[in-house]
Amino acid sequence: MAARVDVHHHLVAPQFRAQLRDWGVLTPGQVLAMDDQATLADMDQGGVTLAVNSATLPEQVTGEARRAYSRANNEYMAKLVGDYKGRFGHFANLPLPDVDGALKEIEYAFDTLKVDGVHLITSYGDHWLGDKIFDPVFDELNRRKAVIYTHPHGPHCTQDILKEIDIRDSSIEYGTDTTRALVNLLFSGTLTRCPNLKVIWSHGGGTMPFLVERFIRMEKAPRYAPLMPKGFVAEARKFFYDTAQILHSTPLLALKDLIPLSQICYGTDYPWRGSKECVDKLKQSGVFTDAELATIDANGGALFPRFK
């Protein structure tokens, strides 16, 4: 069976699901969809051979509870990896912005639970990835040559700012927050300092592909030129990008024009989207040939040694 690896796949440990539903983070239907068998059924429907899980990190969980939330989700996901051999991978949840807690969890997750990478949010408390407060975390992840899967949210500053219309923060604010983090990681010099990291950006890179002209104009500024000797686009082409929530020919074509096929990974955003819908819409977009789609399907697998 041809590999189809979903790098954008959300589950939450069972003991937290009711709480997330009550907070409005998950709908009742999404809670049901997070059941093991329901998840596997959706994967089978869309031909997903391997899903790499990441847990939603609601900001209502803070302090010590956050460490416990990360640990419990990581143990749950490690169990899934063991219980369903070959079907699930695991991006470790980290209790950031608690740097000490994150460093402890990195050690446990990699050394004991054998995770495939870590799951970082694009910003924590209005500090974006690349902010110096996170340097110890990036240095440690770099030492471990980690895969970092990133996911946006609506940072405090932009939460629910369009008060008069019915629109989710995921529609506009998520995309921008991915761009902020991507730019901050690159232009802060974090990635020059940490060259071993492999970073996956959600949703086709947020809004970066559409703002690329702005960043190209900045690449020659004396402050930034040493960080990107071959320019911004050469650096952008080193990242990985998933296809979650960009199931339309326009963003897909923009991504294809800008980023080599080897860096584009299949992602669903389960349980917000089903795997078959994603497969069908990627094909219907007409942007990729079947051979190119097969490459995108398989790309995620190459990131994880245990699934090679």
Binding site: H127, I165, F187, F210, M218
Partner: peptide, 25 residues
């Protein structure tokens, strides 16, 4: 100026988003 670590005009990221917000609104 949300990004404290980099020196860049808000035109780079924030302007584009604000136009999108206004269109949606």
């Amino acid at each position: 100026k949300p990004l404290k670590e980099v020196v860049m005009p808000d035109a780079m990221i924030e302007f584009g988003t604000d136009t999108t917000r206004a269109i949606a609104n």
